[in-house]
């Protein structure tokens, strides 16, 4: 079954008219529709509480919509095919501590492949591969609580990569990273060929990694288009409690630097 998913040729993520209310009645999503095709990199931006995380939680069926559907590849997301959906969609959490729960980095990265029922050698191979991809193989035997934030994030990504997902979903990957780790992460993300959906406030990162941006505001999509175009639209950004990426702001120092 997992194999079948792996072979799927078009990893489309399609949401149509999603509505979701939290148990206490708070509105989460209010009619969201989009279609993301294979290999696209999409930034999901919007103010706090706009519904970014809520939307992400729908992508692998953790929350189920009150109304509307989500399709991942050939499958609608439903309890019946949750397993194959979750194998296909790899989720990187905002807080790596939530994602790294095993005693050592190795155990943690092996957790997913073990659950897939792979053979011991295959598991080991997957773990090594995933850790090498994120340049964290030297952390193999360390316990997660002894890692820096940047290292934790890399390992968290490795835990997801080890499942060979087709689609990577990330919640605020650059938050709480120092500038160097952030830069390294951006380079890493750019090197992935996966379909990527990244919820973020870091618009500079969005500019670097994502060619497309979806802007959410109060549970609705207020804009959906090329990142470079949307991030120039000051009205739209202001309305969504966002700000132009620093690089696009005309700061005197940068201007001076450019002249030289």
């Amino acid at each position: 079954m997992g194999y079948a998913v792996f072979q799927m040729s078009h990893h489309i993520v399609e949401a149509s008219n999603l509505h979701y209310n939290y148990p206490d009645g708070t509105m989460g999503l209010n009619g969201i529709s989009f279609r993301i095709t294979h290999g696209e990199s999409v930034a999901l931006v919007g103010e706090n509480g706009a519904g970014k995380s809520t939307l992400l939680l729908h992508l692998n069926g953790y929350l189920s919509a009150r109304q509307g559907t989500i399709r991942i590849g050939d499958y609608p997301v439903s309890t019946k095919n949750l397993d194959s959906v979750r194998r296909c969609v790899g989720m990187v959490f905002q807080n790596s501590d939530d994602q790294l729960f095993m005693p050592t980095v190795f155990d943690d990265v092996a957790f997913g492949p073990m659950n897939l029922g792979l053979e011991k050698q295959d598991v080991e191979q997957k773990v090594v591969q995933a850790l090498e991809t994120v340049n964290a193989i030297h952390l193999k035997h360390r316990p997660p609580y002894r890692l820096s934030q940047g290292e934790k994030k890399s390992v968290a990504i490795a835990t997801v990569l080890a499942m060979s997902p087709d689609i990577l979903v990330m919640d605020e990957p650059t938050s709480s990273l120092d500038p160097t780790s952030r830069k390294r992460l951006i380079g890493l993300l750019k090197s992935f060929a996966h379909t990527k959906i990244i919820a973020t406030h870091d618009l500079d990162m969005a500019m670097d990694v994502c060619e497309r941006t979806i802007v959410l505001h109060q549970g609705r999509i207020t804009a959906d288009g090329p990142t470079m175009k949307l991030l120039r639209d000051e009205n739209l950004l202001h309305q969504s409690s966002l700000e132009k990426p620093l690089r696009m702001q005309h700061c005197p120092v940068c201007a001076l630097a450019k002249k030289k």
Partner: peptide
């Protein structure tokens, strides 16, 4: 947090059993 961890485990195919290679 326990809920988020549980979710993170489910995302990676947790089925009630913890398997370890030791």
């Amino acid at each position: 947090r326990a809920e988020r961890i549980y979710y993170a485990m489910c995302c990676r195919g947790f089925d009630g059993q913890i398997h370890r290679l030791t």
